[in-house]
Amino acid sequence: MGVGGAPGVYGDAADVAAALMLLLEFGLLRQALIRDQVRLYAAQSALISVLAIVIAADRNLPELYALAGLSAALKVVAVPWVVRRLLLRPRAPGWRAGEEAPGVAGSYTLNVASAVLASIALAAFGFFSFGSFHVSASTAPVTALALAGAMVFVAFGLMIVRRDVASQAIGFFSLENAISLAALVLAAGMPLILETAFLFDLLVAVVVFGMLIRAHHAKAESMSTADLTRLRG
């Protein structure tokens, strides 16, 4: 499906990377432990960097290599490290040192198989709605764009289905991954400074979410957001 010069293989490689990112998003949805969720998030972010490298090689955009490196440093190394520090080795009152963070296993509102099936429906909706935009960017693999759309929906689904703050934060971060993916395939030539700004935006979000998670845990002594329901007006 590669449009332009390189016939097929680059475009298909981009599609495969995008499809794998979508599958990792589903992995996030199913995963029961925060530690594993963070790992999956790091893998997903690594795929974004791989995709950036593929696109850079395909279209001769050297600054994308820099972006790939920066994105990897930030999202594969820094963000997971920060999240792990905040969640798994917290020094907040109520958490003893070395104690494992509370699990998020029981936080499904649906059972896992139904959640996956519902998200498949969401993903199909996202896929076809983004696919029907008929974006004819110069060299964009259209499938990858539509997959990014599917990822956005699944990330939202993840935040809805899981009732714990940690999964919701991870869902939000992976939403950012989905948007980066869309940006990469649509506007690969976007100025580097803009992309960098987005990345640091993410870092701010991580810190804010971290604070929120810890504050919530200190108050409610659980990761569950079920207690917040009674705050509804």
Partner: peptide, 24 residues
């Protein structure tokens, strides 16, 4: 086992819908 099968189903459904996304 349903979860395992749901995962396989997910893989193949994503595969099928990617065929449609190519604009081809």
């Amino acid at each position: 086992i349903t979860e395992y099968v749901a995962a396989a189903f997910l893989l193949v459904v994503v595969g099928v819908i990617t065929v449609y996304g190519g604009g081809a």
